[in-house]
């Protein structure tokens, strides 16, 4: 049976619940794992968008969680579930990237047929390409913020970074992204 996506995605609150859920999931509790999915799916998708071929992101998102479920017994630090999950996501994204060195970015952005949407899709693709040129730490943090709309504290809770590190990554990443986008406009 497929588990339905939750209607409202709960925040990745740093409320201590993640460790408990991860511990329960590690022991085989599917409900707990579904809650972790609800909390982390957007963050993982952002991470995948920062690394993987766009056309494969949704597929890889599902696979990341499936791999995590299958490897649940190997989760040794439940309070670092996010970092562990991201490591799986990065690994899968890396494999996908090696297999797909070239990518036509706008391909799977939505809304063919509508001029306005097509323009938005092209702009989004350009911004994503620029974001992917950033160093990894900035790229992932910015993707979580700009693409998935996670807040700084949520990013910190998901990644295990301190609030200060997240802020630094966001602002330095923004500077670099701005430079790249402006350079792209000039070209």
């Amino acid at each position: 049976m497929l588990l339905s996506p939750v209607a409202l995605t709960p925040a990745i609150a740093d409320d201590g619940a993640v460790a408990g859920l991860a511990r329960a999931a590690s022991a085989g509790d599917r409900g707990a794992f579904a809650q972790l999915h609800a909390r982390f799916a957007r963050a993982v998708r952002a991470l995948l968008l920062a690394h993987a071929p766009l056309r494969e992101v949704d597929d890889l998102l599902q696979e990341t969680f499936l791999q995590a479920w299958r490897a649940r017994a190997a989760l040794r630090e439940p309070d670092r579930f996010g970092a562990w999950l991201f490591a799986i996501g990065r690994s899968l994204a890396g494999r996908a990237r090696r297999r797909a060195p070239r990518e036509e970015l706008p391909e799977s952005l939505p809304a063919p047929g509508a001029e306005r949407h097509a323009q938005l899709a092209a702009e989004g693709a350009e911004a994503l390409a620029a974001l992917r040129e950033l160093p990894e730490a900035y790229r992932e943090t910015l993707a979580m913020r700009l693409i998935e709309g996670l807040s700084g504290p949520e990013i910190a809770a998901a990644t295990g970074l301190t609030h200060g590190s997240v802020r630094v990554n966001l602002h330095r990443g923004m500077e670099l992204l701005r430079e790249r986008l402006h350079a792209g406009v000039k070209r």
Partner: peptide, 20 residues
């Protein structure tokens, strides 16, 4: 402006949790 540029990506529905 940047948030709007990324909006098409953000608005895509999340795929469901796969069968465990």
């Amino acid at each position: 402006a940047l948030e709007r540029r990324f909006a098409p990506l953000r608005e895509r529905p999340l795929p469901p949790l796969p069968p465990l």
